[in-house]
C-alpha cells in the first residue's frame, strides 16, 4: 500500500466544502438512529467511518444520496440542499457515486451494458461514446477483459470492481462506499482495496464505511468513529489509532485491532 502521508497536510486540500451536514437528526419511527450529526467534507478529502454495527454509519452515508431521508437538520451536497425536491435529488445522485456491500450489479445486462446504462439514460450520451467511457473505467479497475460477460459469471471481487467502475462512469465528484469489502472472501479484498487506493491517488473525494484499518491508515485524511448514532470522535489516522480520546473509541479499537 502506497504511503499517502505526504498528501494529508490539510492546507493542501481545497478550502471549499463539498458536503456539509448541519445538526442532522434521523429517526426510524421512535428510534433515534442519527443524533445531531455535524460533518464537513472538503473537496478531495478522504474519510473512513468505523464503528460497531447499528451505530448508524451506513445510514449516514445513505442520507447523503437520499437513499434515506433525514428528518431534521440540513445536508448540502456541492452547494445543493437535499430536500424533497426531486430535481435536486436527481442532480445530487448524478454527482455522488455509491458502491454497495452486495455489489448490486444488474444481472440481466452485460458488464459493459451495466456501465453504459448511466451515461446513456442520464447523461444522454450516444451509445458509442458511452461504451468508450465504460471500457476506459473497466481498464482503470483492470477488468476490461470481462466486458462482455454477465455479472453472474464473475467472482465477488471482480463484481465489486465492476461496481466501482460503474459509479465512475457518471464522473461523480464524490464516491461513497458502504462496507465495500465486507461481503468478499479474504483473498479478494486486496484487489478491491487496490482499486480504491488508485481512486484515492487520483484525488477523488471519498467517504468509506469500513473496518479495513490498514486502508484507513494509509489513505484516509480523517477517521471518524460512530456509536449509537453519534460521531464520537474524528481525527487523523495517526492521532486516531495512537491517541483515542474517548473510552468508547478505545473500547472499539481494542476489539477490532487484535
Amino acid at each position: 500500500m502506497v504511503n499517502q502521508k505526504s498528501e494529508k497536510i490539510e492546507s493542501s486540500l481545497a478550502n471549499d466544502a463539498i458536503i456539509e451536514i448541519i445538526e442532522m437528526h434521523k429517526w426510524f419511527g421512535d428510534f433515534h438512529v442519527l443524533q445531531d450529526i455535524n460533518l464537513t467534507v472538503k473537496k478531495q478529502e478522504r474519510i473512513v467511518i468505523c464503528g460497531p454495527s447499528g451505530s448508524g454509519k451506513s445510514t449516514l452515508i445513505r442520507c447523503i444520496n437520499r437513499l434515506e431521508e433525514h428528518q431534521r437538520g440540513k445536508i448540502i451536497v456541492d452547494g445543493i440542499e437535499l430536500t424533497n425536491d426531486l430535481k435536486n435529488i436527481e442532480k445530487i445522485r448524478a454527482e455522488v457515486g455509491m458502491v454497495f456491500q452486495h455489489f448490486n450489479l444488474f444481472p440481466h445486462l452485460t458488464i459493459v451494458d451495466n456501465l453504459a446504462l448511466g451515461p446513456i439514460w442520464v447523461r444522454k450520451v450516444p451509445k458509442k461514446e458511452a461504451e468508450e467511457i465504460a471500457m476506459h473505467n473497466l481498464e482503470k479497475v483492470q477488468i476490461a477483459d470481462q466486458a462482455l460477460k454477465y455479472p453472474g459469471q464473475l467472482s465477488g471481487g471482480q463484481q465489486q470492481r465492476v461496481a466501482i467502475a460503474r459509479s465512475l462512469c457518471m464522473s461523480p465528484k464524490i464516491m461513497l462506499f458502504d462496507e465495500p469489502t465486507s461481503a468478499l472472501d479474504p483473498e479478494m479484498i486486496k484487489e478491491v482495496l487496490d482499486a480504491m487506493i488508485e481512486l484515492a491517488q487520483e484525488g477523488m473525494t471519498m467517504i468509506v464505511v469500513s473496518h479495513e484499518m490498514g486502508f484507513a491508515k494509509s489513505v484516509a485524511h480523517r477517521v471518524l468513529f460512530m456509536d449509537f448514532g453519534q460521531i464520537v470522535e474524528g481525527n487523523t489516522p495517526e492521532e486516531f489509532f495512537d491517541n483515542p480520546q474517548h473510552d468508547r473509541t478505545k473500547l472499539f479499537l481494542s476489539q477490532i485491532l487484535h
Binding site: Q71, I231, E239
Partner: peptide
C-alpha cells in the same frame, strides 16, 4: 485535525410530531 464534538445528550430530542404516533 479537528477533535470530536462533545457527545451531545440529544437523546431527549423527540422526532418531529408529524413523523411518529
Amino acid at each position: 485535525m479537528e477533535k470530536a464534538d462533545q457527545i451531545n445528550k440529544s437523546k431527549d430530542i423527540k422526532p418531529p410530531v408529524t413523523q411518529v404516533g
